[in-house]
Design a protein around this nucleic acid. Structure first.
Lengths: 173, 173
DNA sequence: CTGTATCCCAGCGGATACTG
DNA sequence: CAGTATCCGCTGGGATACAG
């Protein structure tokens, strides 16, 4: 049997099963225990992704974001509201000298942590043949950004060296 | 003016503009020159993402993929066909001893290169509070996978140390 | 076992007009 | 400048039935 969860913390979640590549996972697959799906519930739309992109590029004001993403104001407003509600962005009063106060959209910690996802997507998009476009570079040295897959202990990991593991939800399940 | 492209290769694309964070980019923004959008055209749907996830977990046969993703057969078939057409997957004849020949879906090079995107999404999804779920680990040492943003020269890069750059498409544009 | 064919509905995102 | 309100077409994805 699986051992009980015990005092489970973020890094001590009980391992229910360590799956080899073809172990049966149908049961928990049905439970919706997939972090990718959780992530996609928040940023699974095109508009959410490219709004976040524009924020990373430095956009802050509503009209700037709407125009640069090419989204209609209606869609931009709706999605920004959702991104704020979901905790990726925050509205903050803002004032340029000599102008009236306005609101700006700024990244929260959660929003900042999405950055690697966008970098990974850009890197993969680069692979798709079409030349030209925008790329993110290291401001310090000017060379392109990409992502590297590593494990928590710092080893660089290639696809064949991976395994999938099921962890408890902290309630012993 | 910007210098002409010259003998432009993948790594020598002419830099049209090195944008500071608030430089005006409305013109080229309209051109659809965004690699994230290119990427999302291929894997922008939930079904595409979770099918790829399932392939990374080791799934290969149609019914396995459909059942474990929870997608209907209709949706799974349609999306798999598209993923094959787009070059992320390949169908290959396959035979288990004593059974008849079947087809399996295997990753192409392009499909393998999507891996960091899924890892980044899983890592971010982990942040969303819900405990439990599947995680990918380094088979060698058992610790969790994540991604690190680096520039081509190997420097680890944080969000404030980035800049966006516009590059030519190889035809001088 | 590996799909295809229909039917259906909800949500995304465009267009346009209007408000504080 | 920063949104709301409506309308509307398209596609994603579920359900179900059928086919090679």
């Amino acid at each position: 049997m699986t051992q009980p969860a015990g005092p489970a913390g973020p890094d001590t979640d009980a391992v229910i099963a360590l799956t080899g590549r073809f172990a049966d996972r149908d049961a928990w697959q049905a439970e919706g225990w997939c972090r990718i799906e959780h992530a996609l519930e928040l940023i699974g739309t095109r508009s959410a992704m490219i709004l976040m992109r524009e924020i990373y590029y430095g956009g802050r004001r509503f009209d700037e974001l709407a125009r640069r993403t090419g989204l209609t104001e209606a869609v931009a407003a709706k999605r920004l509201k959702q991104l704020v509600a979901d905790g990726l962005l925050q509205r903050r009063p803002y004032r340029e000298p000599g102008k009236r106060t306005r609101d700006e959209y700024v990244l929260t910690e959660l929003g900042r942590e999405l950055f690697p996802v966008l970098v990974a997507l850009m890197q993969w998009g680069e692979r798709l043949g079409r030349k030209g476009g925008v790329e993110l570079v290291h401001a310090g040295c000017g060379s392109r950004l990409g992502v590297v897959v590593k494990c928590a202990k710092g080893h660089e990991v290639a696809l064949p060296d991976t395994a999938a593991r099921l962890v408890a939800d902290g309630n012993g399940r």
